[in-house]
């Protein structure tokens, strides 16, 4: 890390003195700072990508629960394939779609540890559907953070199982035709029906309030894991500005106007008595 402070760099770049109130910028006054468990490197995600926000809140929860040394993560294949470069916890990189199986292997031999997978829609709900459904059905005591942006980001914009009807992608160039290309998969609702599943909740990270809620939900899920309640999934409906061919702002608007009405936010299943 550079020894220069942010203030120095900004002053150099803007070529003018920056007015920071030193009376306020004191450690005791910090209300938000990057979580320590998020490794201090630039993330490869596109500007405005919800993956980064999801990484951030997941690591905030790990920080706040103080479980950095007790948690093992499983990274997927997709845009978040490099999640282990950003999360400062022990991690394994799974084959495409197999994260829940890998997590099962880890959790079964170390039931005392926290285990999470971080998966996108293609990984979790297309190629990895079997692994996801069966891990859920066995009630594997793991947390699945499911990022749903309705598109394949890493391979540059192909149709995902969760692509909205009529939505244009590189493999549904005339819009997803449900008659020939199938319907969007409500994987969270599907999993919520299984008795092994303890908690399923859907959130977004496009506004400050939604970020807060999503974070709370992840914290809850890890708490349930500690109590051994079973399979927990937090779905995060988010954006893909680059492959939706939108600015980050427009993409968040699309999340608000199109994605959320189709994938309504909130708890889908909560443990009994919670």
């Amino acid at each position: 890390m550079s020894e220069r402070t942010y203030v120095d760099i900004e002053a150099e770049l803007t070529d003018q003195p920056i007015n920071f109130d030193e009376d306020i910028c004191l450690a005791e006054n910090v209300v938000y700072i990057k979580p320590q468990t998020l490794i201090d490197v630039p993330m490869h995600y596109c500007p405005g990508c919800g993956h980064s926000t999801a990484h951030k809140i997941l690591m905030e929860v790990v920080d706040e629960m103080g479980i950095q040394e007790e948690i093992i993560g499983v990274a997927p294949v997709g845009c978040s394939v490099f999640a282990y470069h950003y999360m400062n916890v022990d991690m394994q990189e799974a084959a495409h779609g197999r994260a829940c199986a890998v997590a099962t292997g880890i959790k079964r031999i170390m039931p005392e540890k926290y285990v999470f997978t971080y998966q996108g829609d293609g990984d979790l709900a297309a190629i990895g559907t079997a692994e996801t459904v069966h891990a859920a059905n066995r009630g594997e005591n793991i947390l699945v953070v499911f990022i749903n942006n309705g598109i394949y980001g890493m391979t540059s914009g192909q149709m995902a199982p969760t692509t909205l009807p009529g939505m244009v992608t590189t493999t549904s160039p005339y819009g997803r035709d449900v008659k020939t290309q199938g319907y969007p998969l409500y994987i969270s609702n599907l999993l919520a029906n299984l008795p092994g599943v303890a908690y399923v909740s859907r959130h977004s990270v496009h506004t400050p309030n939604n970020v807060r809620k999503a974070k709370k939900s992840i914290a809850k899920a890890l708490e349930y894991q500690k109590q051994g309640l079973g399979f927990c999934m937090v779905e995060i409906v988010t954006n893909c500005p680059s492959n939706w061919k939108m600015t980050p702002k427009q993409s968040n608007q699309f999340v608000e106007e199109k994605m959320i009405p189709f994938y309504p936010l909130g708890d889908i299943k909560v443990p009994e008595g919670k």
Partner: peptide, 24 residues
């Protein structure tokens, strides 16, 4: 501007966690 009241909304939505917020 100098109107910041340290609500941290910017930091919450910032994907890259580049904003540190102080409030007094």
């Amino acid at each position: 501007n100098d109107l910041c009241n340290g609500c941290a909304s910017c930091a919450l939505v910032c994907p890259d966690a580049v904003i540190t917020v102080y409030r007094k």
